[in-house]
Design a binder for these strands. Sequence first.
DNA 1: AAACAGACCAACCGCAACTAT
DNA 2: GATAGTTGCGGTTGGTCTGTT
Length: 467
Amino acid sequence: MERSPGAPLASSPEEEEEKAAVEFGHHGEEEAPEQDQQQEEAAPVVLKKGPWTTAEDAMLVDHVRRHGEGNWNAVQRLTGLLRCGKSCRLRWTNHLRPNLKKGSFSPDEELLIAQLHAQLGNKWARMAAHLPGRTDNEIKNYWNTRTKRRQRAGLPVYPPEVQLHLALTKRRRYAEFSTAPELSPGTAAAAAANVQAALNAAAVSAGYTSSRPAPLDLARQLAAAATSQAAVHQFLSPPPFSAPSSPWPKPFARNAQYFQLAHSSPVSPSTPDLSLGYGVRGGAAADQSRLAPLAPPLSPSPPGPNRLELPSNQFGQAPPPASAAAGFGGGAALPDQHQHQHQNAASLDKMLQELHEAIKVETPAALAQANGGGGGAVLERHGGARDNRSDDMDTLFDLMIPTLNAPDTVPLAPAAAPNHSGSTSQHSSDDQDPSTVDPPAAGGASSSDQDWGFDSVCQWSNMSRIC
DNA sequence: AAACAGACCAACCGCAACTAT
DNA sequence: GATAGTTGCGGTTGGTCTGTT
């Protein structure tokens, strides 16, 4: 199989075509384009399958340079390349397109993928939109391999940060459903401290000490979020969904961006476009998904560690960044929100209490103790602490409310907070609820526990192969 | 050194959505 | 509105590489 698609493409198109013809002849697989053209009327063109050759790559690249991206079915007609349009598009997208990043994923990218998968499920293309230079195929391959490996080893699929994120999300849904969403900044800050305490306790119970500090400074982030009433409101209550419209132009024009940006626009995963990944399939919207990482963010987010992730635009009414930013200075609650603060405090306390319990069970040490081989996710294992109603509510929310993004809890992922772009259907039919994908932990919490420790981002990312 | 298993990766396939006529 | 063509996506397959026995 052809392993390095990035072969030299420096020669002229004419030379490449000549080369291609020679190569086809050598392989005895295809006719030279000229001959093929003559036979075209007589017999249908037999398109080639299998690995691409360097010459074919060159022909395709040249074609795109001349005619632009898109109209893939014309490639065969215009160049004599014996590949179907679909194959051409795939080859271009996955291997020949400029700005493609090759090589293994960085730890940051791996963590980001985990976060994105937790939020989006198997939406590889949308995940790829958050990872500049990476293709959906690449991410899919990575995830499938890695997941298979971890499941075989009896390890949870997601790193602890993501698991916690999911736990928070569930608690938040529950809190949202149970009470009104408003919350005073002071209460939220106190709650954040409680969460941090819970994390610390969990870490200690798992054998992690201050010498191995946890990467999750959740309290700080929650406290930051708590300073913004608007942000807290968003944190707890998503605006209703409305499909966005796409301002992006049709194909062909987009091709220019590839070539223009190929050498000029280093992109960073730290700047995910908040407008990415709407659930609009195909067409200009899909094009936007693919191009967006190369384009400047439509709504710049406040820089710095305290940057607060806003809820997904999928819910329509893009949250005005200004409101959240303004809140950082200690924004005052809206008058009609005050009346719910008391309820919310109680609700959040309850949420935190449950979260604490969940985390306690989730930690490797506790898991080893508590788990008799029962499967299920963190919260399912923790199900005993919840009444039927909350279980039902979770199920209900799983069905009707896409996973929301809490304020970014992962310092590592710069971008992080992929902005859950959401789609009308959160997961594909075969997607599992991300919060329940933890494999049965039968013997799982063992030697590899450190992989999922609270300070284990690196271990997780750099996990050696488990066979 | 050979056989084997697992990981990795590229490519294909089928389906669905979108667009043009 | 119907239809055909195009594009994008996700699942799957099969070849190659790599490490282990």
